[in-house]
Design a binder for these strands. Structure first.
Lengths: 193, 193
DNA sequence: TTATTTTTGAAACGATCATTTCATTTATAA
DNA sequence: TTATAAATGAAATGATCGTTTCAAAAATAA
């Protein structure tokens, strides 16, 4: 019966992600999205409902890609040290490859919209919970393996690492010196040992 | 000859700061600024030139207030430990009092505009240099006083602290638990000793 | 082929965007 | 008081905002 959706939803989301990432939510116009996605204005509204709704899908899409990268790296690591280093390594690469200094889409959105859009706020809360749970998992394993010390509860170290990642990502917007970033990471992780 | 500027420029900047802080640069309209400052549209353009120009003045204003707070705290501290703790303490209070989760005006702006506005980018570079210089100063003193270790150069520790502050400020948008934040700060500073 | 359902294109919606214009008001210096 | 120059108010600028509308095109199932 129906004419089926012709465009590839992931491709469209990828294009939309690039625009939102570059210009931010408020800096992106619907015309920008029409131009970037090669979709008709009506098709966007048919498929995504509104600009905010499309952005929320973009966020989830971006998050799931990140999540997959994490899972892949974590699966490859033999112990907690490798795991945590793999994660920071991933961010350092992200920073160095971010030539136009866009920063992190999620962090940018957190600072732009958390206090304005309830749906964004709850996305950020879930994101934070998820990140901290993952980090706490790694720390707990490291502590059980006696690789990490027990000076702090795993949950506290997880919050510390979560905070450090956000700091690293913000710092990396202007400082892309790999030595600096690796040194910074070493300093952050030192407290665990 | 001339009629002199009647409004108080600092008061106007303060009002404008509140709006930009709450809504971000792209989220703030000239109408918002007219409403908030009780200034006429023409007067704003006469006195500030453009929205971007007014925002740049707002940033400087905000920065100078912060700078004064820093100087005051630093003058009151007897050694490097007290100095660095005073700074983190200042941010923790800032976070806890930020009831509507606006975050830090400068950090928000860094993530929103660094890749879009050259004038903002250079402001952020200067801001980073200034912050790191201040932190390096404290670390150097702490190292000379043998309070801090010498495992890393003062400049590297300064970058680490700068990064940690940004992380703390971003984390504080959603997590306002004072125990968590103090614990986080302790963990950050532990590496110095 | 035909009926059905969705996508598409183009135009239009009213609202709002940052900025400009200009005549009027206001306050100063002479 | 009078000449001068800036501040002010109100309206208008053209562009762009997010969103809606609707007839035409397209693709499927029968």
């Amino acid at each position: 019966m129906p004419k089926v959706e012709t465009f590839n939803r992931n491709t469209v989301l990828q294009k939309a992600t690039e625009v939102f990432h570059k210009k931010g939510y408020n800096g992106t116009s619907m015309q920008d999205l029409v131009d970037a996605t090669d979709l008709n204005r009506s098709s966007i509204y048919n498929s995504f409902g509104s600009k905010l709704n499309m952005f929320l899908e973009v966020l989830s899409h971006y998050q799931s890609i990140y999540g997959n990268n994490f899972s892949q790296k974590l699966a490859q690591s033999y112990n907690a040290t490798e795991a945590i280093e793999a994660i920071f390594d991933l961010y350092i690469h992200e920073i160095i490859n971010d030539n136009d200094r866009k920063g992190c889409l999620v962090i940018n959105c957190k600072s732009e919209m958390t206090n304005q859009e309830p749906l964004i706020k709850s996305f950020m809360e879930k994101n934070q919970d998820r990140m901290i749970a993952m980090l706490e998992d790694i720390v707990t394993k490291g502590q059980m393996e006696k690789i990490f010390n027990q000076n702090q509860a795993a949950s506290q170290y997880a919050l510390y690492l979560f905070s450090s990642i956000q700091g690293l990502r913000m710092t990396g917007i202007l400082n892309k010196n790999e030595n600096d970033l690796r040194n910074l990471t070493r300093t952050v992780l030192k407290v665990l040992y």
